[in-house]
Structure formats: C-alpha cells, structure tokens
Write a protein that binds this DNA or RNA. Structure first.
Lengths: 248, 248
DNA sequence: GCGACGCTTCGGTGGGCACCGGAACGTGCC
DNA sequence: GGCACGTTCCGGTGCCCACCGAAGCGTCGC
C-alpha cells in the first residue's frame, strides 16, 4: 500500500522552487501565459544564461514549468492554469509594499499593468475586477452562493460569441474567483474567464501592450462599455496620462 | 523593462518561508487550525527549541502565523483561512509520489488521515470529498455554474441546525472548492464548510483522532449516513477501491 | 562549409542560513 | 524565596546553492 500524504520536505522542496529571486522573477514573467525562450528570461532577470538554464531545469523537473525545444531555442511556459493560480495566490499573500517610484517610465509601466493585464489566460487588473463587478451588478452572474451564471448571463455571452457549452465539458471549473494582487479584490478566472479574454482579443477590443500589460483599443473601449451597459468613461484608466503617440 | 508590482524578491521572500523542511513541517502541523506551543513544535520537528523559536519569529513576521503569548508559553496558529488554503494548494501541487510504508503504525496513521481530517477548519479526506459529492448528487448543491446552494440545500442545512444567514454576512465566501491533496478532488471549504464541520463536532458525530485526523463516532456514522441519504456502509473507512487503484 | 548564436555542462567561489549549545530571562509552582 | 520550565538571545559552524566564466555542442544563416 502506498499513501500520498504530503510531508514537510516535499512541501519545502516545492516552495524552494519559488524561494529564489531569479526563479520568482521568471515565474512572474511567465504569468502572461506565453512561452519564453531561456535567453529572454536571462536578460529579464539580469543573470547569465548558464544560471537561467539551471533554473529552468529545476523548475521543469519540479513540475511548475513545461518546456518545448525548438531548434536552438528552449521555450518554457507555466505547466497549467493551476500553477498560475498558485503563483497568483502566493503573490496575493505577499505584503503590500509601498511602491518606490524609480522613474517616470517605470511608473507608466506599473500604471498600465495595474489597469489591465493578463493573469495567465484571463483578464486582471482594474479592468478585470470591473468586469466581474459589472457582470454581478447587471445580473449576468449571481454571487449569492458561489459564482453562478444566470440565464441573462448565458444570453449575454451568446451575444458576444462565447458559447458556454464547450466550456462545461472540460475538467476546468467554469468560473473561479482569482484574487487580484493589485486590486486585492477578485477578478474572473476559470474556463469562462479565459474564454472571455480570448474573445476580447479576437474581436480586437483588447491588444497586448509590453509584457503582461493589456490595452483597450480605440474601438474596444466603447464596444466593451456598451456591452456592459457602462459609459465609456467608466472604463477610462483612472489617472493614467495617455500620451499621444505611444502605440508601440 | 521594469519588474511587476509584486516583484521577484517579494515573492521569493514569501516562498522562502515555506522552503525549509522544519518550517514546512510546522505549517503542516498547524493546518489542524489549532494553536501550538513552540516546544510542541520543536518536539514534532525534531529540532532544538532555540531553532523553532527563530522559525516562529520569521513565520509571524512574514504574516503566515499569528502568535499569542500566554504565561511562559508562546502559542502560534495560522494567520487565517487564506493561509491554510495557500498551504493546501501548495501541497496539492507537490509531486504525488508514493511513499514506502515505514511501519504498520505509520500506515494506520496515514490511512486515518486519508479517510478524514480537518483542513484548517473544514472537513477533508475521503469523507470530505464524499460529503461534497453527495450534496451535489442529492441536489443540495448545484455545481453547474460554480457552487451554488439550492433551496433544498438550504432546508437541509436548517434541519441540521446550521443557519446559513449569518454565514453570508462575513467577508468570507460561503462556499469554495478546496483541492484535497490525498483525493486530488475538491472538498467543501469556505464559511459553510467550516460551519458544517463545527456542527458535526458539536453534535458528536465527529471526534478528533490524533493530530489532524478525525473519526466518525459510533453514533455519528449512521446519523451522517442518514442525513445524506446513504447506507452506513458507504461511509466505511476501508472503502475498497473497485478498479484502477491497484498499484501495489 | 563557416561563423554566429543559443544553450548547456562544469568547476570554483561566495554568501546566506539552519542548526546547535550555553547563558540569560521571565513565568508558574511549591 | 527557590526551583523547574519554556523561551529567547548569541556566537560559531557547516552545508547548501546561486552565480559566474569558459569550454563544448547543436542549430541556423549565409
């Protein structure tokens, strides 16, 4: 007979994978859900390629990452949504530190990230929280006893071109609250959260900024506002100075 | 490019708290939701009291534990349900490696733990998973779109002496799926999960075994089975796996 | 083919930290 | 008051591991 009770050393070994500055930086970068090459991660983390190579091997062996060799590149990504959730949960428990502003450029990047970003495969940041809140307000979701989809919500999703039936098929929960580590309030995760985010990109309402940051497109802002029954101004990035040309 | 809001070092420092064998053992022990004295934890972990004292200071300062001084004792417990959830989630991601059976005594303890235990403040193990499954089967819960309480469920809880209204008041979610690390399937957590567990102890259906383990009392077995509309045998601890379990 | 590039392997080095024992401090008990 | 006990502070020791540079290997581009 065998048992699977998790003992101290086992737990410690797993936690140790995230207990290093460089590995933590790598995992946070991978939260965008995309595959990164080893060299990119080395540059991002500011360490030698050989160091990153070692880290990636450990993270893959530990089950947090999966790799995909392609020619002379080694691409890695998070092993799945549950790993992303785990890292987000950890980040949510980290002490909320006062933010030292290092530069205007850094402040802009932080503001963009706080406004909207992907959290592995769904939408996070102020926009992500607003989406969940509004869906609750409009009666598309019912939050009285856990998250439940209302008939109105079903129709709303259908109108957006997001069929729900296939989402129920998989093992993944349809909806899940994911604690947003900038807002400290939940946004919508799970299969539906991912599908909605996908769809917004597909119809061109959202576009990727640098890294995990996400922006509403000129057409997407009013369209999303209309879909949610909000004024376009309600979706405005709060105090974000939108400089003219910056469409890089 | 700049680092994100929760940066690498911050995440790493938090993870490092759990990345030590002794601290991990301590946290797993505290998953029973009770307060432990420093000396007890030292004996449990097999290290000197001075070592544990150091660890506790770090865990408390890191926000994972809270302490309560009482005379010459220093009691610590997990800082809250979210910390318990975090540790359980981590344990759920640990590689499921079969552990060799060390002794008959250890095997018995493992079996008891796998059958029923507390997961911080709610019920876990085979019994916890069975409880959630049966509540779904009997239509007490609706799991189609997230976990939702049905009218039938409301009445059932009322009959058990578990009033739901007060549970809705708090900030804590009423229901939440918590991945069981022995069953690898969800059991019922959240305010309701805790209240049910409390009630089962209160009416004497459950009693604490050693540590986190929990046992059905002679009266509790039939009573719980009846409440769930099951045969008493369905709750038997040594449920023989029908197929597929059989890797010796 | 050749060179550039991305990645890996391998010693070596340095820093961080888990651990201990012993002394000191406070508390509870007699 | 005196003693036992639980805990804490402190210095010291040893281990683990993140990091690097250099060399080696496979891949891509010309």
């Amino acid at each position: 007979m065998t048992t699977t009770a998790t003992d101290g050393p086992t737990l410690a070994r797993l936690a140790a994978l995230l207990a290093d500055d460089t590995r933590a930086r790598i995992c946070l970068a991978l939260l965008d859900g995309r595959a990164w090459a080893a060299g990119e991660l080395a540059r991002l983390a500011g360490v030698a390629p050989s160091t990153v190579s070692d880290h990636l091997t450990r993270l893959v062996r530990g089950g947090l990452l999966v790799e995909q060799r392609q020619g002379r590149h080694r691409y890695v990504r998070l092993a799945g949504p549950s790993v992303a959730q785990l890292i987000e949960d950890l980040a949510g428990h980290a002490p909320a530190r006062p933010r030292p502003v290092r530069s205007l450029r850094a402040a802009r990047a932080d503001a963009a990230l706080a406004y909207a970003r992907t959290c592995y495969d769904h939408l996070a940041g102020r926009l992500g929280v607003l989406l969940r809140d509004t869906m609750l307000d409009r009666g598309l979701l019912d939050g009285a006893d856990g998250l439940a989809l209302t008939p109105a919500g079903l129709g709303w999703l259908d109108g957006l071109g997001v069929p729900v039936a296939p989402l129920r098929a998989g093992r993944r929960p349809l909806m899940r609250d994911c604690l947003d580590w900038t807002e400290r309030r939940p946004h919508l995760a799970g299969a539906l959260g991912a599908a909605l985010c996908d769809r917004f990109f597909e119809v061109g309402w959202l576009t990727r900024g640098g890294g995990r940051a996400v922006r509403l497109t000129p057409a997407g802002g009013p369209a999303l506002a209309a879909a949610l029954g909000l004024a376009p101004a309600d979706l405005a990035p709060a105090a974000a100075p939108e400089t003219g040309g910056g469409r890089a």
